[in-house]
Amino acid sequence: MTCKECRKRFVEARYGELNAGQRAEFEAHLQGCAACAAEYRRLQQTLRIMDQREQPRLESDFGDAFWDKLAAKLDAEDAPPAPRPPQRETPARVLRMFDWPRASRIAAAAAVLVIGVLIGRYFFSRGGEEIPLAGSRETLLQPTALEVRAGDYLEKSKVLLLGLVNWEAETPEAVALDFPRYQRASRDLLQEAGYLKTALEDSRQRRLRALVADLEVVLLQIANLEAENDLSAIEMVKTGVDRRGILLKINLEEIRRAQSLPRPGQTSGKPSI
């Protein structure tokens, strides 16, 4: 036994928690090692001092007083709550009274509705303003125009994903997810992703390209979902969005882009579109 091993066993030895074999080994080491023996003696001496700790004497009525106090608390717990004087409905009080889990479900349902409307506007009601799909333009856009197109793609993807991640099937307030519409939108965005990946290849926007690629995986999953009732598959998509931090990345990219755009009245060396 080494000194290190011996010292590791001090505690168990002192409290009698070594088996016979370990005990014999421990004692044999102490016999031959003056340093460990001295260290163990010091430990025992410390504990002998701690043994002299005295508990205070309790008053003779400690037990009764303790019970009386406890019984009063138990009575207070069992008693029906006393009627409270009417209180002014301050905003903070109203907030406290609010049923937050229910409120959050309603908010989520409302968000899905709003996002559904936005999806409709973005993807299907814009007539001539629809995104030109891959191959529909004969030439590559200038870098700044490409950024605008990428921004448009990110914004639409974000709206779509928000609708999906906020949707909860098992709540009474859940609204039906317009599944075919989500899938059509995903397929359109996939075509755009294919174009952007190629177009961004030559630019220095590796981060943006990586984000487009991340989104492409999720959009592909949505486009290939077989049934709108396949809740586990929808959950898998939601988990994927969460795990990859896609919404956060989109937000960061939007912030980065907003910061790099010239403010009104600000002259910029960058060429305008």
């Binding site: 001090f10 010091r42 430990l43 410390t46």
Partner: peptide
Amino acid sequence: VKALLFRAIKRLQKELAIYQ
């Protein structure tokens, strides 16, 4: 538990050093 106990005793030892 063992590590915490050993550390506790060492600290007590230090605190009680004057008395010892």
